[in-house]
Amino acid sequence: MGDKNINAPLTEAIYYILLSLMQPMHGYGIIQNVKEMSGGRLVLAAGTLYGAITNLLTKGWIEAAGEEENSRKKEYVITTQGKAALMAELARLEELTANGRKVMEV
């Protein structure tokens, strides 16, 4: 069965988490990566990130990627389904900016 929400807008946090997980990463790594990508504007709150990871795992958009040696830190990575959601969001954002630029003539 297809994912009916695959074309629904993603929250900013989910978008950045999925982008971060194009390579395997653990929770704190995601927080640091998102902070860096957003130029320090977005600092993911721990509760928000935990809830997002739990939901994304349930949805099958990310999966566990094994654990670091001598560490209990869990790593996660994006799945094919997650990549499809990310691509759909990218297309949606591009459409929004393209139309905005065309109308505003900027």
Binding site: T11, A13, K35, V43, A45, A46, G47, T48, G51
Partner: peptide, 16 residues
């Protein structure tokens, strides 16, 4: 130096 928040949005605070 960075603020300690448990949630990023009011929507999540509200759910809590």
């Amino acid at each position: 130096g960075t603020p300690f928040e448990m949630f990023n949005t009011t929507r999540e605070e509200l759910a809590h």
